[in-house]
């Protein structure tokens, strides 16, 4: 046994040295979010081997990287978390000598509040959190949070809400005309009452539900635009609504970790996804926009002009970027959330 263990260790050491010579890039990204072809293309171009590790929430990613010793080079945090990553010194500024194509970023996505001037990150994908409705069952207006908070009888009892506290709280707060991190007690009371009254109409609070919508388990819900598109491509009855009272906008951003093992390869990868033909792959896989100029030309035909991707101009103003709320506000949100799920 001992001998075998020794051999295994030797083999492991040998393999890491060999891999190290060619270069390895360790990407830490959300699950089910990375087009395999994107990585294959990068390896073919650069000779750098890529490994991909999944996470399921910003909190998981942040906690793991804070501990150190993770071995990752690239992470893809959401806009609300970017400032935490930057101020804690977890990210490395972009190296202009390698990341040369920042001009490819859509000017709207350069001076973003979460990373002004794009000093640390490049866009990965952006989207909206709205509502999904089976329009074969309900033909009323779907650009309203009422389909979930105050649902018509034909949708009640068949509703799924993503278990993303900040998204759901945001939609409920905007529904009552408030600001994302407001401490206004009257507002928060209305928000709680709305959620408590809506909850009995809901069947589940579940994530991985593209199949479940297609299979007919759910008829409506709070959902992301790209995921809704994946549902619609399998069942054209489903449509995406942008709540007119306000809905969250979000953007995930690729950045290099300050303790990256292979920062050079990581910077190369960031420049690689700034190329329109590569960014288009990201969109084709997860069905979200990417913020890179000219990438539409390389996207699948069904992405062009898709109602989930092109925000209707009259509803564009209702989309809002959020912020991570201070702990005392987050505690109140958690309390309301727990009360709702008790």
């Amino acid at each position: 046994m001992k001998k075998q263990a020794g051999l295994a260790i030797a083999a492991l050491l040998a393999s890491t040295t060999v891999a190290g010579a060619e270069g390895v890039l360790n990407i830490y990204n959300w699950g089910n979010y990375t087009h395999p072809e994107l990585l294959e293309r990068f390896t073919a171009e650069t000779g750098i081997t890529v490994t991909l590790t999944d996470y399921d929430s910003n909190d998981t990613a942040l906690a793991r990287v804070r501990q150190g010793g993770h071995g990752f080079d690239i992470v893809v945090p959401s806009d609300t978390y970017m400032q935490t990553w930057i101020t804690e010194g977890l990210l490395m500024p972009l190296d202009p000598a390698i990341v040369t194509d920042r001009a490819n970023i859509d000017p709207n996505w350069i001076d973003v509040p979460f990373d002004p001037g794009r000093e640390y990150s490049v866009p990965w994908a952006w989207g909206t959190t709205g509502v999904i409705v089976n329009t074969a069952l309900y033909d009323g207006d779907i650009n309203t949070a009422d389909v979930v908070f105050n649902p018509p009888p034909e949708l009640s009892g068949r509703i799924n809400v993503i278990p993303e506290m900040s998204d759901v709280m945001s939609i409920a707060i905007y529904y009552h005309g408030g600001e994302r991190c407001s401490m206004d007690t009257d507002l928060l009371r209305s928000v709680r009452d709305t959620l408590m009254a809506a909850k009995p109409h809901w069947l589940a609070l579940d994530y991985g539900t593209v199949d479940a919508y297609v299979a007919g388990d759910f008829n409506a819900g709070i959902y992301w635009n790209g995921a809704t598109m994946r549902v619609r491509l399998q069942n054209p009855d489903f449509a995406y609504g942008y709540p007119v009272t306000g809905y969250p906008l979000w953007m995930d951003n690729a950045a290099v970790l300050s303790d990256a093992q292979n920062p050079e390869a990581a910077m190369k990868f960031l420049n690689f996804i700034l190329q329109p033909e590569n960014a288009a792959l990201i969109s084709n896989f997860a069905r979200y926009s990417n913020g890179i100029l000219g990438s539409e030309a390389f996207m699948d035909p069904e992405m062009q002009g898709a109602p989930e991707i092109d925000v209707p101009s009259e509803l564009a103003a209702a989309g809002r970027f959020g912020e991570a709320c201070p702990q005392e506000v987050n505690d109140i949100h958690t309390q309301i959330w727990t009360e709702m799920l008790q």
Partner: peptide, 11 residues
């Protein structure tokens, strides 16, 4: 409930 506090609840 415990997982919620370590994740989205951040407490």
């Amino acid at each position: 409930l415990i997982a919620l506090q370590f994740g989205q609840g951040r407490n």
